[in-house]
Design a protein around this nucleic acid. Structure first.
Lengths: 183, 183
DNA sequence: AATTTATGTCAGTCATGTTGACATATCTTG
DNA sequence: CAAGATATGTCAACATGACTGACATAAATT
């Protein structure tokens, strides 16, 4: 009982199934993509969340570990740009990860004020484990999609990201401006 | 200075640009999609976050408003399933939205214990405004993608979502066989 | 030598999540 | 009808991960 009232055309009253998503007329809102992004991201991060509990860590730790592992030698300031949090906020989780031996700091060669961050083997193992879970989900989701479709997905996700004032990591991902390898 | 060290093959050392994303060999991790999802979602929700500040609301309020608007007559219990939070947590934001006239409750017809939730015109306006911002980003991102590509994106996002134990909203989105959610 | 920069830290606050306990109204069942 | 289950609401305490503001230190830059 208490069925959902579809009076406002909720959830694709004109749905044609997963394959035949109707292109909305100009000016219409993309409720479909908005909601799919919500649920997809919810379940995507959910994979890691469970595992993190066993380590006594939260999402914040995961994000830090991930980017430190992926971009070895990242500066604290770069990490702040990427995560878009304050140094006080980063400080707490970073301290934990340092204390528990998941990350090490090295003083910068050129600039001795900098603390360059590196994942330890322990940290690498954690990141790899979490990335494995998320990769499983992604691989499953991509299984029945052809290479053109996968390219479209990649293009879409890239185009969803703000390009103004990109941080160091985004520069690396996008291959800074004209330096794009073989567009 | 202090350039990122790419020693671990960060950011697609074998990248071929947005179009030619190489399919990773079996067993490899999808760092590319993992990071694109992170940044894409970060900026996607960022659109709404700014606007919400002007209303003194947060993401929690947005999520509640969104689903109440989209699925009019949603029960409190359904909302808890969708958002995956506790009733105490929902209670706070819901009370604010009720007090400030963004949502109204109606007693269920069949079951008078239920409080069916509906967006007021004020609430509708807020949701539409936020969805407009997000739709702008999505439309931009989809601009140069052909219908087959858009279908692939939709299929991918759907496949990223857990289908076991779907809530009422997901049943509506996926159109689970027995069309009407009956129980 | 003075200033700026990169980082760290203390202290307090806020938003949003949690658990546990309990109240109330209403529906369902024996 | 009485008893129990269900839907919702609420109080209290607590955890996490954000925030602002202030200040400290070392090292680089001017």
């Amino acid at each position: 009982m208490t069925d959902i009232n579809f009076s406002r055309g909720a959830a694709n009253p004109d749905s044609q199934g997963a394959e035949g998503v109707p292109a909305p007329r100009a000016g219409e809102l993309r409720w479909d993509i908005i909601e799919l992004l919500f649920f997809a991201y919810r379940d995507f991060v959910g994979d890691a969340d469970h595992e993190l509990e066993a380590f006594g860590f939260g999402r914040a730790h995961h994000r830090v570990m991930h980017f430190v592992y992926r971009y070895p030698g990242l500066k604290v300031a770069d990490l702040l740009d990427v995560l878009r949090i304050t140094k006080q906020s980063l400080g707490r989780v970073l301290k934990q990860l340092l204390d528990e031996g998941y990350i090490v700091q090295k003083t910068g060669n050129n600039d001795r004020r900098q603390r360059l961050l590196y994942a330890t083997p322990k940290g690498e193992a954690l990141v790899a484990k979490l990335a494995g879970l998320q990769t499983d989900r992604i691989t499953r989701a991509l299984r029945d999609i052809n290479p053109e479709g996968v390219a479209a997905i990649s293009q879409f996700l890239r185009a969803m990201i703000d390009r103004d004032d990109p941080d160091k990591v985004l520069e690396a991902i996008f291959g800074t401006g004209s330096k794009k390898p073989r567009e």
